[in-house]
Amino acid sequence: MEESISDRPSSRTQVFHRSCFAMNTRFSMVLVDIDSETAEAMATGVERDLRALERLMSRFDLESPVSDLNRRASENAVHPPDGLWEILSLCRDYWQRTRGAFDITLWPLNQLWREHFDRGEEPTEEAIERARQRVGLERLHLDETDRTVRFESEGMSIDLGGFGKGFALERVAASLRTQGVERAFLSFGESSITVLGSHPHGPAWPVGISDMFDPQENVRIFQMRNESLSTSGTTPYNGMGGERVFGQIVNPRNGRPIEGYRTMSVASPSGMEAEVLSTALLVTPERDRAAILSGFSNVSAVEIVYHSSAGEYVPRSEWQYGF
């Protein structure tokens, strides 16, 4: 049968792709309908911005301002650079708006569980209690007048791992928009995604939340336009290498990891808010979630729980909001 001209795409879409390692994971950007030279220059700029943000926020870089805070802030009030001060202020606001569910001070508690997980054990009640004395954003004092930071307890530690990627995506998206980019797909480790505009061949960017036990299957689909999607969850393994790793999320309210395999995906016009809410909602009991979400606009969310059945894990949407 003869194919009519109009059935074919009028011209092949020009696609530019670049991946790089940043913030402990892989960042990928896909741009469409932009000439390769311009796209290349944009990608270089994005990589540079990501590195700068990483240097500001990484707790693994011993010379970062976050490492400096973690070393000194339990002894003295520390004056962080403006960029970090703004991030800490934002994090405190989100902590309040999520009623303590989003918290950047959980590192000592996470670390306790991670170390025990590696040894195949569970920490004692006393150890959990001790760690809980060193976590909680109420113990992080931000002095608005002097713009200084002080930790109330010895051993406190800031970890921006659950915030940085969303924050960076929001910055990158804003910068690309300023440069005239209308369509883009940006991904941080595929757990944080931001899109600009829509897919060139459809009304939105359709993004599937994949079944973590059967990655080619979509459990839910988000039709994304100018928004961000973040997924948090407990995983049995690192999706890339297949090896068993600590993939749990500790609930700040009781100091224990949340149970079972479950994920929370949140779409929001703001990359930061999607990132913050995906962890916050996961550790918040279902009955309290709507109250938190009433303080945020244009958010949709879905929780997927994996039920064990005949030796297989079957995903089910248990809770959703804003659809």
Binding site: T13, S28, S191, V207, D211, P215, E217, G239, V245, G247
Partner: peptide, 30 residues
């Protein structure tokens, strides 16, 4: 890039509009 991103790029280049399974928790540094 991740397999999902590769699939997305192929779709874009070949004019397909399809949902690719991309999103998921990547809690661990991969």
């Amino acid at each position: 890039p991740a397999p999902g991103i590769v699939q997305l790029i192929n779709g874009l280049e070949n004019g397909f509009f399809e949902t690719v399974p991309i999103g998921g928790p990547s809690w661990v540094p991969d």
